[in-house]
Simulated scan of single mutants.
Amino acid sequence: MLADEKIIESLKSQQNRKLLGIDMESYGVMAAGSEVSAPRPEALIIKGVSDFADSAKNDAYRHYAAYASAGILRLLVEHLGL
């Protein structure tokens, strides 16, 4: 679905001019949530990005990205009571 340039350009035109990529799983969760009838679920996605998914892709920073995203979740829970 996101291979469609019209969708990507639409996302860029919504104040996302510097869009570099879209996490497919996160996009799927948010798209599914927007398609259901009331009561609509609320979703929060926190994702650590560890590479550009290009030919240089490797797992060197995968554990750090997971640690950092878990740390953000912890801060949100502790300080905002989520």
Rank of each mutant, 00 (worst) to 15 (best):
N16V: 07
P41F: 14
E25Q: 03
P41C: 07
Y64D: 01
M30A: 13
D54K: 02
E25N: 04
L11E: 10
G48R: 02
N16M: 15
A65P: 04
V36K: 07
I7H: 11
P39G: 04
D23E: 13
G21T: 04
K47Y: 05
R74C: 00
G48V: 02
I7V: 14
M1H: 11
E5T: 15
P39Q: 07
A68Q: 02
G28C: 12
S34M: 12
M30P: 00
H79V: 02
V36E: 10
M1G: 09
Q14V: 12
G33W: 12
V77A: 11
S37P: 06
K6T: 15
A65T: 04
H63Q: 10
A65G: 03
S26D: 11
A68E: 01
D59F: 12
V36A: 04
V29P: 05
K57M: 12
L73E: 06
H79M: 05
G28M: 07
N58M: 00
A65W: 04
A66V: 00
V49E: 02
D23Y: 09
M24C: 10
R74M: 02
I7D: 11
Y27D: 04
L44Q: 03
R74A: 02
E25S: 06
A60S: 12
H79G: 01
D23Q: 05
E25V: 06
S69F: 06
A66L: 01
Y67N: 00
E9L: 08
R40A: 09
N58S: 07
D23S: 08
A56I: 00
G81N: 12
S10V: 07
A60V: 08
N58E: 00
M30S: 10
K57Q: 09
R74L: 03
S13P: 07
V36S: 08
Y67I: 00
S55T: 09
L2Q: 11
D51S: 04
E35C: 13
S13A: 15
R62M: 05
I7A: 08
R62Y: 06
K47D: 05
V49W: 05
K47W: 03
A60G: 03
V77M: 11
M30R: 05
S37W: 14
S26I: 06
G81S: 07
